[in-house]
Amino acid sequence: MSDPTLFEWAGGHEAFARLVDAFYDRVERDDLLSPFFPGGVTGTHRAHVTDWWAEVFGGPPVYTEQHGGYETMLAHHRGLGITPEHRLRFATLMSRAADDAGLPADPEFRAALVGYLEWGTRIAMANSQPGAEVVPHAPVPHWGWGVAPPYRP
């Protein structure tokens, strides 16, 4: 039996849509992060971010095929000046949103989720700095189970 993707394990596109909505609901109420989204987070933005997260975690390549892939995501973060405090708050709110959205709570899945959060938020923070030298072209990352595959009793 092969291991499911993280996308499949989480519950597919609908699960990632719940995650992203729960996250941005928290962001809109957050004094530190809400200024990045004056007027709130649009439905279009939420849908595009859902497509990104779904693709990263093993879902279909919708973000790459319909929204421009890595280069588009990079462009959205350039010049934002994300601080370490912003980065940590983002990661914390996303972890809490995973609970809100009812994503799997098993340690193996959550370790993979937090691993991507740490990696992705640090890349976004570095790429957001004024004058940052960025990798201009790269594939959308594809996150996997890492060292702990899904636990099946």
Results as ranks from 00 to 15, higher is better:
E65V: 04
S95A: 10
R122P: 00
G12H: 12
F37D: 00
L74N: 08
V114T: 07
W145R: 11
F23K: 01
G43Q: 12
D51F: 00
L19G: 03
P136H: 13
R96C: 03
A148W: 11
H142I: 14
T121W: 01
A112H: 01
H76T: 12
P149D: 08
A54I: 07
F7G: 10
G131H: 09
V147K: 13
R110T: 14
Q66K: 15
T42Q: 06
M73S: 09
Y63K: 03
E85W: 04
F16E: 05
F36P: 01
D3T: 15
A91T: 06
W53R: 02
R18N: 11
G68R: 03
H45N: 10
A132E: 07
T72Y: 14
T42M: 04
P150N: 13
T64P: 01
Y116Q: 10
S2L: 12
D106Q: 10
E71H: 08
A138N: 10
W53Q: 10
G40M: 03
I82M: 11
R87P: 02
A75G: 15
A97Q: 06
L93T: 01
M73H: 07
V114C: 02
R29T: 13
L74F: 06
V114S: 04
H76M: 14
V20Q: 02
G146E: 02
V62R: 15
H45Y: 09
L103F: 01
P139D: 13
D3C: 10
L19E: 00
P104V: 07
P136G: 10
R46C: 06
S2R: 14
Y151E: 11
P149C: 10
D21P: 00
D99W: 04
R122T: 15
V27A: 04
P107V: 06
